[in-house]
């Protein structure tokens, strides 16, 4: 089965570890993720101003690319891309006036009238494949690995785009359980990591991110699993900061859900590109017997 896939900019560069591990894992689960031709940047954030339509052009154009291919569904891995594309689609479906203006502005393109369903890969795993089917394909159960799932904001908020219960999501825990991991619930799973404030207000953003790691550690998690390259970056910086302040603090690496999926499915862990992880997860994974030899981080 083919699935149209929108990568977005960060997954092609800094978060290649998320992309490659996802594509290879999905293939092992019988789904070929086909990269959308001629995709452009989604804009990363949905414009919240009622009088600003120009910033909706980029994500809508991506949706048109899917439509041109005859697709009716597109999957993302990056949470920001998911949020931006999904909200653009909701806007185009729900607001006839703005839809008309945007379509007529893009007169070189076919019209977009909400023909494409935007989904996150976690939804495909849950709704199209199912936890049972996934657990049956597990070759290397993540036994003994204590993981906290961290959702951040953009998969769940605003409520109209939520892929799960806004306050009490379970999709990632369900996946991790299917992979054999020990799931640690923690109260910061949906707290914001500080997001783009990492650029202009780095200190403030790090405060927010540090609280998330500290909370996961207090509940006994050994790693934090996530979906978003922004969260990954902020938590990585926060981890470095925490270690600087308190050297005795245990490491708590962040991992993309797709990296753990690839490991559990028994795939070649080269696709995991652990060298791109901000905090090296290999010592932890080795201690649990989940990987054999490590790749040096920073390569």
């Amino acid at each position: 089965m083919n699935l149209w896939y929108y990568p977005g900019c960060t997954l092609k560069t800094r978060a290649k570890n998320a992309e490659d591990s996802a594509i290879v894992s999905m293939a092992a689960l019988g789904i070929d993720m086909v990269e959308l031709p001629r995709w452009n940047c989604c804009g990363t954030v949905h414009s919240l101003a009622g009088d600003d339509l120009i910033h909706h052009i980029a994500p809508v154009r991506d949706l048109i690319r899917v439509k041109e291919q005859g697709g009716s569904k597109v999957a993302t891995i990056c949470s920001f891309c998911y949020n931006t594309l999904r909200r653009a689609d909701i806007l185009m479906r729900g607001d006839a006036e703005k839809r008309g203006t945007i379509n007529s502005f893009m007169d070189e393109e076919p019209d977009y009238n909400g023909e494409v369903d935007v989904v996150h890969l976690l939804q495909v795993l849950r709704d199209d494949i199912g936890w049972k089917a996934i657990s049956e394909k597990v070759k290397l159960p993540l036994e003994g690995l204590k993981v906290a799932s961290y959702y951040g904001c953009t998969l769940l908020r605003p409520a109209e785009v939520a892929i799960d219960n806004v306050e009490k999501p379970t999709v990632m825990q369900d996946l991790l359980r299917a992979l054999g991991a020990t799931v640690i619930e923690f109260p910061f799973a949906t707290e914001c990591c500080g997001s783009y404030q990492i650029v202009g207000n780095v200190g403030f953003a790090l405060e927010a991110a540090k609280n998330i790691l500290t909370s996961a550690l207090r509940r006994g998690a050994e790693a934090v699993v996530l979906t978003c390259p922004m969260c990954d970056y902020n938590l990585g910086l926060a981890h470095r900061e925490l270690k600087r302040q308190r050297g005795d603090l245990p490491d708590i690496p962040t991992l993309y859900f797709s990296q753990l999926l690839a490991i559990a499915l028994g795939l070649d862990t080269e696709v995991c590109h652990f060298n791109l992880n901000y905090i090296d997860p290999q010592p932890l994974l080795q201690s649990k017997g989940l990987i054999v030899e490590g790749v040096k981080v920073g390569e």
């Binding site: 954030v45 414009s47 920001f80 990492i198 650029v199």
Partner: peptide, 22 residues
């Protein structure tokens, strides 16, 4: 004014969204 050491390793998604918002 963003220092080069800040930019290093920073994902595009952070930069683009910061500029879009601020």
């Amino acid at each position: 004014e963003i220092p080069p050491e800040t930019l290093e390793g920073m994902p595009q998604v952070a930069l683009v969204s910061s500029f879009r918002k601020l």
